[in-house]
């Protein structure tokens, strides 16, 4: 599969995993950075089978509910694909990527933007501490518009 097609698939996968739509993810400016990051950090065979599994999910399921069910069954279980799905979610949510396990685990934030574009802050109706400031006094009211 060519990179441009894979990138499209990565966008679709990311949307299913994060619960944000593809355009919202593009809006973070992190799509390509994360795509190449995941490519570089994951073993080729594992990555191929991960994409293949997702292609299957998208081929045989149409509705969001069906896709979610299929992902829960074949992608999310911990032993599947070395926890790659969770790693991708964590990358989008926190801008972090952890290599290794236990005492040897090392966590990276690929770029300053990765941290600043963490989706988890949007979910909490706030912003990453130290970036995307909301302005004087904004904290005195609810963030609901």
């Amino acid at each position: 599969m060519r990179n441009t097609e894979r990138l499209k698939l990565f966008a679709k996968i990311s949307a299913v995993l994060t619960g944000f739509n593809v355009m919202e993810l593009w809006g973070t400016s992190m799509m390509e950075t994360y795509f190449y990051w995941v490519n570089a950090q994951t073993k080729g065979a594992e990555l191929d089978s991960f994409y293949a599994e997702f292609e299957k999910v998208f081929t045989y399921n149409v509705t969001d509910e069906a896709i979610d069910r299929a992902v829960a069954d074949s992608i999310m279980p911990k032993e599947s694909f070395g926890g790659l799905a969770n790693a991708i979610i964590t990358l989008w949510y926190l801008g972090q990527w952890t290599c290794g396990e236990g005492e040897k685990a090392k966590t990276y934030i690929p770029t300053p933007e990765a941290y600043q574009q963490g989706l988890i802050w949007l979910i909490g109706q706030t912003h990453p501490p130290g970036a995307k400031q909301p302005g004087y006094g904004s904290w005195a009211t609810t963030p609901d518009k």
Binding site: W26, G27, S29, P134, G137
Partner: peptide, 22 residues
């Protein structure tokens, strides 16, 4: 008038997001 500052920031984040959408 000071409430406008918060809206200005919000405006920026929304514009920047749009400009990243292909």
């Amino acid at each position: 008038i000071s409430k406008g500052i918060g809206l200005m920031y919000d405006l920026k984040y929304k514009a920047v997001a749009l400009m990243n959408m292909p």
